[in-house]
Simulated scan of single mutants.
Amino acid sequence: MTQKVPMTIAGAEKLREELLQLKTVARPQITAAIAEARAHGDLKENAEYHAAREQQSFTEGRIAEIEAKLAYAQIIDVTKLPPSDRVVFASTVLLTEEDSEEEKRYQIVGEDEADIKEGKISFSSPIARALIGKFVGDIVDVQTPGGLRTYEIVDVQYI
């Protein structure tokens, strides 16, 4: 049995939207492109046909992948958790880097949701693994590609 994969409500919704788009827009477009390419005759040398079939294969694979992820998703609504100073999956954490005193804000999310530009880090990232279970005021050492960094947890929000 495959284990449940944690995901935020927003992450699950984004996957559902992509799935709907693939099934209702992309799939019919590809089917139409294959039919049109078949109408041109000889399929062996028909580049449009082969490109459409390749796109169909990719799309069907992505649909299966999304359906599997949603089937095994453990969707976590952080707003339903009792307020706490503890860092958990889906919480938003405000950190201060000890050396530079630079503030960083991260939300700990599922692997498919991670986007560093949006301040969303995967729960399996080194920073998230070091933070989960810690509390406001704790000092955390994190081994990053740029070397060892020390952060203080300034705030934890369940938003």
Rank of each mutant, 00 (worst) to 15 (best):
I159E: 01
Q157R: 15
K23T: 07
E65N: 07
E67N: 05
P28R: 13
L19T: 06
I63R: 02
A114I: 07
T31Q: 15
K44C: 06
D138V: 08
K134W: 10
E13W: 02
Q3I: 09
D115H: 12
L22C: 00
G146Y: 12
K117T: 07
Y72F: 11
V93K: 11
H50S: 12
T144Q: 09
F89P: 09
S57W: 07
S122V: 03
A51Y: 09
E152D: 01
Q29C: 05
K120R: 15
A51H: 13
I116C: 02
P83I: 00
E13L: 11
K117H: 02
V5W: 03
E152W: 03
V156S: 01
T150G: 08
A12M: 12
E103S: 07
A64K: 10
V78C: 05
G11D: 00
R16S: 07
S124M: 12
Q29V: 03
T92G: 06
A52Y: 12
E36M: 12
M1G: 08
G146N: 12
G119R: 12
A10M: 02
E111W: 10
K117I: 04
A26H: 08
R149P: 00
E13Q: 14
E118H: 11
K134M: 08
R62F: 03
T8S: 14
D115R: 14
L15D: 02
G146P: 03
R38H: 10
S125R: 07
R53V: 07
G11I: 03
P83S: 03
T24K: 15
T79R: 02
G133W: 09
D155S: 11
P28T: 09
K117L: 09
Y151L: 05
E111V: 13
S84R: 07
Y151S: 01
G137V: 05
G61M: 05
S84C: 02
P28H: 11
T2Y: 06
R105A: 00
E103W: 11
L15N: 04
T8E: 01
E45R: 15
T24E: 09
A90K: 08
F58A: 10
K23E: 12
Q107R: 15
I121Y: 02
E113L: 06
F58L: 15
L70S: 04
K120C: 03
G119I: 12
Q3E: 13
N46V: 05
F89M: 14
A68C: 06
R62W: 03
G119S: 05
E152Q: 10
T59Q: 01
D42A: 15
E45H: 15
A47T: 10
I9A: 00
S125Q: 07
K23P: 08
K120E: 02
E103K: 15
A130I: 02
H40A: 13
D155E: 14
A39D: 14
E48A: 15
D138F: 12
P145G: 04
R86K: 15
